[in-house]
Design a protein around this nucleic acid. Structure first.
Lengths: 130, 130
DNA sequence: ATTGGAAATAGTAATGATTACTAGTTTTAC
DNA sequence: GTAAAACTAGTAATCATTACTATTTCCAAT
């Protein structure tokens, strides 16, 4: 009996599945509280960690000091806007080749990688052309 | 007169140049205090930020919750050991092509990327084979 | 060389994301 | 039904980093 059902965890997972913008724990908390008014922030954090440990969701450390979460666990890369901070999915060819490249002259074992691209998102790009 | 000389900044930069292990602000603080006993942690943080803003050093956000700093500003990639947490330089071919790949089907502007590889370093790899 | 003011410093307090703790509640295997 | 294990809400603690403040240092112009 490793894992027990919890309504809170279900609601958190369900909410995350409706979003494609990689919300932070705090954003998840704010939203989930609409349907589940007295859920605790600690519960949100614990379940997000649990779900990502189980591989049901992904934790994104994009380098802005706050963890983001993604219900889409299929392999894909992310873009982070330097202006507005939004985290966006990238549609691009597979680049797993870089993992091979990294392992060529390395004495340890490489299990994976994370790649984040940054710059200006489409919306911020337009705004700054005035 | 934008930037003024400071002995503290010089000592911090000099120390960082002697290290290839990408120390954290706290490690820099501990070590610099040997030659400069009453330097403040805030001064270390402020100068590390200043130096990286000027492009003299690099700030590495490897996703372990602590910033690491690197005096080597030439383009290269990093490996993070999942076991011991050490951050190691990788000797590998240039992979800037992934930035082109990311920009192909993207409406914004891509200015750069960060790629971190993870797994077991050579030393931890050996220890876990018992 | 003196000096005025901008930039830097030490020391400390504040911030903010995340984790830990605790007493009580829910789930579930028997 | 029941008991143990897992979970929860609420709160306190942690820890990296930033902000604040009174004082000191650097340096360009006199």
């Amino acid at each position: 009996m490793a894992l027990k059902y919890s309504r809170q965890r279900e609601v958190i997972k369900d909410f995350l599945c409706t979003r494609k913008d990689h919300p932070t724990a705090d954003v998840v908390y704010m939203n989930v509280r609409q349907q589940y008014p007295n859920i605790s922030l600690g519960t949100v954090y614990r379940n997000l960690t649990l779900l990502s440990d189980m591989g049901e969701i992904m934790r994104l450390r994009v380098g802005d000091g706050v963890d983001h979460f993604d219900a889409d666990t299929s392999p894909h890369n992310h873009f982070v806007c330097s202006e507005c901070g939004s985290v966006i999915d990238l549609k691009m060819e597979n680049i797993d080749y870089i993992q091979e490249a990294a392992g060529k002259d390395f004495s340890g074992r490489i299990d994976g990688y994370t790649a984040y691209f940054y710059g200006l998102c489409g919306s911020c790009c337009g705004k700054l052309q005035s």
